[in-house]
Amino acid sequence: MAARIVRDLIVLLPIKLRMFGCPIDGPANVFCDNQGVVKNASLPESTLSKKHNAINYHVVCEAAAAGILRFGKGDGETNLADLLTKILPVPRRKLLLGSILYRRMKKFLGV
């Protein structure tokens, strides 16, 4: 299901960028730490065990076939999306946030 949400969000971005005249370098790289999802979306020979997810499955795989996105297994420890799904202990939270949000004191210039 999460993969379907990703696909729906991803297809919109290239359309916008293309209309801005911005070239896009290859398919979108999607990192996911769930091995099952990655296998289903990146290997044609994988068999899906859940029947009711079939539509979402094909929508995602078709996007992969069209070269819009590709699924890869990301490291569970450094998956930035963890910040948006579970409440993390302070040290890990700080580690993940450190690569997105910057502290004003140290890293800002002037202004």
Binding site: L17, A81, T85
Partner: peptide, 27 residues
Amino acid sequence: EVEEELPPEMPEPLGRPVTISCFVDAN
């Protein structure tokens, strides 16, 4: 032979290319 659908009236891409990446997780 599926292909990505390109928007009509799309201009010729110019400038430096961008890479899209995405992180996803479910609880």
